[in-house]
Every structure is written in structure tokens, then in C-alpha cells.
Design a protein around this nucleic acid. Structure first.
Lengths: 349, 349
DNA sequence: CTGAAAGCGCTAACAC
DNA sequence: GTGTTAGCGCTTTCAG
């Protein structure tokens, strides 16, 4: 079944080299020979043996993509975008889950090295120095997420968490909200720290109360209880900005389970754009990390280094965006409440 | 950087063949040599060149996994399970999105063939005969989802949609529900047809009204309007079973958007277990397709065929399950309404 | 129990 | 514009 390049050469009446060259466009071939080769290929249903090709070239057409877990909704978009880019460049993406396990991660990298991948994207939340080291030592083009370092063969994608928070506050402020609260995450996380700072600074700048910032733990429960707290005062906020999606879910659970008094038009705003499409509540403005773009940029970074003999790495900044849905509400004393409920084209996957 | 087997052999003072054999456990080696080889490998940080290995063996350690789209929540669980299994067997899963595009699918398969993969799992909803053919012709172990055919080198995974429906109705019936409606999908879909039949038969068996079955279109909108219809009669159902997750979402949207009268304790039940974790409504009993199991079984099927020189395929039946959440409710005249809202351990990913 | 050597299918000089 | 051929690093007979 496996027609080889030899068969093609024989059938087309040319040398093996010629076949290889038309296949790779690696040297000019006369129109007629070229066509005979192509015909032979078609008739034999031949497809290049990548193992052989990779062996001869010393590098494979596989690119490694390390993510924490495909089941984490953060990753599918990234993955798909990365794969699309790879495909467009005649490469394949080998996606691996690290399951948040450093051991498994290192092992995966080892496998990737064995597969002779020329480049790897490491988009896990935690990054083991041993991994960076191993990849660098082997001169593999590598991109990391929020690594904060750039080097020969090392690129870095920086997510600008601030932009989303700023845009969100400006948006809410413009809708007329004056008491806007923020529920953040554990401050040992870089992203939590930066979001909180952005909130405080922006709140101050917009003349809002910067002290309405709470630190939770980026979990559903944390959001739930933080929300309770915020709404238990005489003058509760009219809008809540959640520092990440799980927090926002918790806030929504709390705000709409009917057990506490809630400002009629409380606006809940989240970060990360995860899962919100499924909510019927008017809580649908989110600041979102442009995931697909991260996937594209990750590929781009690798590709750039690969086409550069120096493998010079660089930094890529990806701003977070504001996603405004129809159902965002102004405070109760503001304009008329907008229409809620099902959207014309539900963004459910 | 790339230490090769030759280097290892030199360092260990043995032949290349010996190194290869200790690496693959393919013939008995004396303890001392074995250890010297292992030591050399460790010191050199050597890892097998898979390209060369694959070329020599004529097959790669890569397994293809074709799915429609990682962004479709149906697939991540499957993917992860498949990958885990592969990893446990020293193989890697090359996951590819077909984007529901037959062209792209065929192209992917061609790529996989080029990569010399020994096996492929095709878990897309639509299956192109050309793909089956191509795979079969190349004697690649292939496993399909609901293909309905088994052959040499072809295995098939059958999802038993019926079980979930049956279990769901028995469960609701046991809670005291008597008017249970069903909203299904377009009958040209095998799964829709089978679910509906299961509903009708089971309803009859349980002494319920089998005529309460509606056909919608497996979309959010479809569920929305079907729900309207069901609730607009004098004696609306006390429980609604949705044929798939999107339908259930539509039903929930409708039932809880405050625009129509809803039985106080309407129970909505869905299929596929997608996205429900995010709902605060008491709609959390689902019949679910055990996705992780599908991933495991898919790998298992391939693995079995690979270790069988005959590549004899077989059929694997995977029953759907009932997932009961705390918040399922009996009808209003039944027992006390159970506690709703946040769960102690929110199953949010 | 171990080694020598013939490929696996392809790429990339190097010739012509 | 085309052909010859020496590897790429490994597996796997076949000898010892």
C-alpha cells in the first residue's frame, strides 16, 4: 500500500531526487517533468513518509503545544487557533496536557525532543525552569506565556490584564454607575495583583471609590461570599466587577439565588469570558483574554524564530478586551432597562 | 546537543544494537551492560530520535484523533482521556480539528498517513466514506463513532442513547412526576430518533403520557419555543426532558426569564451534561454521554487491534448515564423543595 | 548474551 | 534541468 518515492520516480520516469524536489519546491523543474511526477503521485495515492523526511532533515513538521488541560475552557480556543495556523503552514500541532503536573510536563518535553520538534509553545500557568533550560539547551524555538524573559530561541507572550479592567470601568462609569466594586484573586498571583492595581488606579482616575476592592481567591465560592459581603451594606454597589470567571459565577449564583436582597439592576462583570454565554442574567459584560489571538501569536512567535537563523526571540503583548453584550445594564436610576433573556444568535457552542 | 544512539553506545562501551535492545526491552541483556547503557543514557541526556525509530519500524508512535472541534464541549473530555491512555502506552495523540469540513478531514487523514500512524480514531459527527476507505486500504487500525459497521481494522463505538432517557424518566417518575414532556431533535438524526423512541416506549411502560413528545431542532432557540408551547396549556408538564444540551439551555432561558408562567417547581432535564454546572436553576439532572469513557474506549479499540495481527475490529457499546444533582425537584405537590443554589463542590472547570 | 551490517524513505550535496 | 549517492539514527536479522 505504502507507495514510496521510488515508486513515484519509476512511474514518472525520473530520478528520486527530482520527485523530492518537485514535492518540496526546492529547485526548479521543467513543466513537463513536474507534471508527470504530480500525475504519478496522484495515481499512486502517494504521500510522503514524514518519518523519513524528518530523519533526513533533522527536524519534524510537528510543533509542540503544552497546555495545562484541554478541559479547562481557557485552552480550547488557543489550541484551535494554534492548530489552524500550523495547518496553514503545513505543520501539525502536537497538543499535550500537562495536568498541572511538573513531572508530566518535563516528560512531555522530553517526548517532544525525541520527536525532533523544531518549536514548542508552553502555555501552562506554571513554568518549570528545568523545561526552559532543556528547551534552550536543545535550541528549540520556544514561546512562553507571561514568562517575562526573552532570549535566543525564547519568545514571550505578555497578557495585558490591565486593559480589560480599565475598559470595563470606563464602560460602567459611562453607563452611570458610581458605586462599582471589584472582587479580585489571591495577590500572590501576578495577574490578580495587576488587575487589582488597575482597578484601584482607574477607579481613582474616574473619581470612583478605589477602596471597593475585595480580595477573594478566584473560586466560585470565593465570589459567592464576597458578593454576600458587598451586598450586605446599606448602600450596596450597583455594579460588581469580578476578577476572573469563576469569581463571576459565584457572584451570579449569590446575586440571583433569591436569598438576599439585590439592587434591582445589579450589574456583574467578569473576567476571562468563560461560560457567560450561558447566563440569562444581565451580567454579560466581560473583559476577556483574547484566547484565539494567543494561539495565533504563539504560532507566529515560533514561526518567526524558525525562519530566523539566529532564533532571536521577542516579546508579544496581547491586550485584554472588553466584550459588551446587549444585556449590560445601567444602574436603576439610569436609563431604561435593556432587554434581557435569549439573544438572537445565542453564542452557545 | 542531540546525543545519538552511537554516542551512548560509545560511552557505554557496547554496540549500537545493544543500546537499542535495552531501550526497547527487545532482548535479554546482562545486568551490568544494561546498567552501563542506562547510565550513559542518563549522563548524555539522550532521548531516542523517534523519526529514525519510526522510519526503521515502519510505524510511528503517534495515534491520530480526529474530532470536529476542540471548542465544542463534547470533545475536550474525550480528547483528554484518549491522550491519557496514549501516554500510558508510550504513545502520543495527534489531535486534529476537522471543523466539520470534509475536505479538511480528508486532508488530515492524508497527513496522518504520511506520519505513518498505526491507528486513528474518527470521532466526528459526520463520517466521509472516502476516509473510511482510505484508512481501510492502508490497513490502519481505525475506530469510529456510531458508524454501525465493524470490519477488519475497523472498530465501532456505539453510544446507547436509550439508557439515559430511560433512567431519566424512571427517576422523574419516582420523584412523583406524572406529566413529563420531552423535547427532541430533528428525526433525521439517528440519535434524535433513538432518544424519542426511548421516551415513547418508556413513557408507555411507566404509565405516563407518551404523546408529550415534541420535535425541535437541537438548538437553543428550538428549546426556547418548544418550552413556550409546552407551558402554554392549562395543565403544563411538571418536568421537561430536553433531548440535548442546547435544547435544555433554551428551555431554561424560557422557563426562567420571567415572561411566562412556570409551574413553581418545574424540573428541566437535559441530555449531554454540557454546561449545566453553570446553572443555578433546579434543572440539574442530566442524562449524560460518558465522554471520558468514549476517549478511553477509542484508545482501547485501537490498541486492541494493533496488538492483534488480524486487526480484527469489534463493537464497543457505551451506555449513557444518569447524573443526579442535589437540586432535582419533585413536583410542587410532592415533597419539600430541596435546597438549590451553589453546590458544596461546584463542578466548574 | 553481544556485535556487524543491511536497510527504512527521504534530503541535499555534488556531479553532469 | 536532472541524476547519483552518501548519509540521517534507528531496528532487526544474521552471525558469533
Amino acid at each position: 500500500m505504502g507507495a514510496s518515492i521510488k515508486d513515484v520516480a519509476a512511474k514518472a520516469g525520473v530520478s528520486i531526487a527530482t520527485v523530492s524536489h518537485v514535492l518540496n519546491g526546492t529547485r526548479i523543474t521543467s513543466q513537463p517533468t513536474r507534471e508527470r511526477v504530480l500525475a504519478a503521485i496522484r495515481e499512486l495515492g502517494y504521500s510522503q513518509n514524514q518519518s523519513a523526511r524528518n530523519l533526513a532533515r533533522g527536524r519534524s513538521t510537528l510543533l509542540g503545544l503544552l497546555i495545562s488541560d484541554v478541559r479547562n475552557p481557557f485552552f480550547p480556543d488557543i489550541t484551535a487557533a494554534f492548530q489552524d495556523q500550523a495547518l496553514a503552514h503545513e505543520m501539525d500541532a502536537l497538543v499535550m496536557n500537562t495536568n498541572y503536573d511538573p513531572h508530566r510536563t518535563l516528560n512531555s518535553v522530553r517526548r517532544l525532543l525525541g520527536l525532533q520538534v523544531p518549536g514548542v509553545a508552553i502555555l501552562t500557568s506554571q513554568i518549570d525552569p528545568a523545561v526552559i533550560d532543556m528547551l534552550a539547551r536543545h535550541r528549540i524555538a520556544a514561546v512562553y506565556l507571561d514568562l517575562g524573559r526573552v532570549d535566543k530561541s525564547i519568545s514571550n507572550i505578555v497578557i495585558e490584564y490591565e486593559t480589560g479592567i480599565v475598559l470595563m470601568l470606563e464602560h460602567l462609569s459611562q453607563l452611570g454607575h458610581r458605586r462599582i466594586a471589584y472582587i479580585g484573586g489571591p495577590l500572590h498571583l501576578n495577574s490578580a495583583q495587576r488587575r487589582k492595581n488597575a482597578f484601584i488606579e482607574t477607579a481613582a482616575r474616574l473619581g470612583l471609590d478605589p477602596s471597593l476592592a475585595l480580595d477573594a481567591d478566584f473560586t466560585v465560592k470565593g465570589g459567592y461570599f464576597a458578593c454576600s459581603k458587598l451586598l450586605s451594606v446599606p448602600q450596596p454597589p450597583t455594579a460588581i466587577v469580578a476578577g476572573n470567571d469563576l469569581t463571576a459565577i459565584g457572584v451570579l449564583h449569590r446575586a440571583y439565588d433569591g436569598k438576599i436582597r439585590v439592587p434591582e439592576d445589579l450589574s456583574v462583570t467578569g473576567f476571562d469570558d468563560i461560560l457567560f454565554a450561558e447566563y440569562t442574567q444581565p451580567a454579560l459584560t466581560t473583559a476577556s483574554i483574547p484566547r484565539a489571538e494567543i494561539g495565533r501569536v504563539a504560532f507566529q512567535a515560533i514561526w518567526t524564530m524558525l525562519s530566523d537563523p539566529e532564533l532571536a526571540g521577542r516579546e508579544y503583548r496581547v491586550p485584554t478586551r472588553l466584550v459588551v453584550r446587549e444585556s449590560t445594564v445601567p444602574p436603576a436610576n439610569g436609563r431604561e432597562r435593556s432587554h434581557h433573556g435569549i439573544q438572537s444568535e445565542p453564542s452557545v457552542r
